[in-house]
């Protein structure tokens, strides 16, 4: 039997008196495209941070392809195959696009502690250039990240998350703040991802979320309240009640 890519069993996360995530049990199968939806404050990003290790869970367990990762630190989880982006871009503003991608590539390769500069034929630099090309950023290799537009920063975020060839890619609101003109480009990027990659996506833009994923989990008050195929989620009465109010 195939092990789930991500298996959450009764995962909880508490901040003092606030129970941000409550007993979430969830299986995401390899190659699945899963959207996590819900109103602001539902616990979606906290759930992401718990899976990635930024906030260790206060209850329950997390497994990645059958390996228990509950007690691991963020960099150890990344080395096991998790790649992620953040709700607000977390980039290295003082460095260039190429340097950002190079750091991302070297993170999971030998020589991440090297005191020698990479040569012209360095595999890591070549991979960073290839990623920039894929993210449509190759004309900005030498630009400082601080000076990129918001859309370009989001593209770079995704490129950096893909740099380590993750087995599970977790994108936290990749369309947040994007102009309507930038959204088709993001959708194209998501659709071009290899089918073997497991994708978990938090997104408020329903068009993007439902076009790029197969299954949707809806959260409210830290609990997963609905799990359904993407093409049937909009008609679900609980979802309508959450987004439109109980009168509908």
């Amino acid at each position: 039997m195939t092990e789930p890519a991500i298996r959450l069993q009764a995962v909880s996360r508490r901040f003092g008196a606030l129970q941000a995530v409550r007993d979430v049990t969830l299986d995401v199968m390899p190659g699945e495209r899963r959207a996590v939806l819900g109103p602001n404050g539902a616990g979606k990003t906290t759930l992401f941070n718990t899976i990635c290790g930024d906030y260790p869970p206060t209850g329950g367990s997390i497994a990645l392809f059958g390996t228990d990762i509950t007690g691991l630190r963020p960099h150890q989880r990344t080395r096991l195959g998790i790649g992620r982006t953040y709700q607000t871009s977390l980039l290295f503003n003082g460095l260039t696009v190429l340097e950002n991608l190079f750091i991302a590539v070297r993170g999971l390769r030998p020589g991440r502690f090297s005191f020698l500069r990479p040569g012209r034929g360095d595999e890591g630099v070549a991979r960073a250039r290839e990623l920039a090309d894929r993210m449509r950023l190759s004309h900005l290799l030498a630009a400082e990240v601080l000076n990129l537009s918001h859309g370009q920063r989001r593209q770079l975020e995704v490129g950096m998350a893909l740099a380590g060839d993750p087995r599970v890619l977790m994108l936290d609101e990749p369309a947040a703040g994007l102009s309507p003109g930038d959204r088709p480009e993001l959708l194209r990027l998501l659709r071009e991802l290899p089918r073997s990659l497991t994708l978990i996506l938090i997104e408020h833009d329903m068009d993007i979320a439902l076009s790029a994923t197969d299954v949707v989990s809806v959260m409210k008050d830290g609990v997963v309240v609905v799990e359904a195929p993407a093409d049937r989620i909009e008609d679900h009465p609980v979802v309508q009640s959450i987004y439109l109010g109980s009168g509908h």
Binding site: P74, L95, A104, R106, R112
Partner: peptide, 17 residues
Amino acid sequence: LVLQGIRDNPRRVAALG
């Protein structure tokens, strides 16, 4: 470069492995 990454964003550096 990683040292400068830590200066700018240590959380992201950890998330890169």
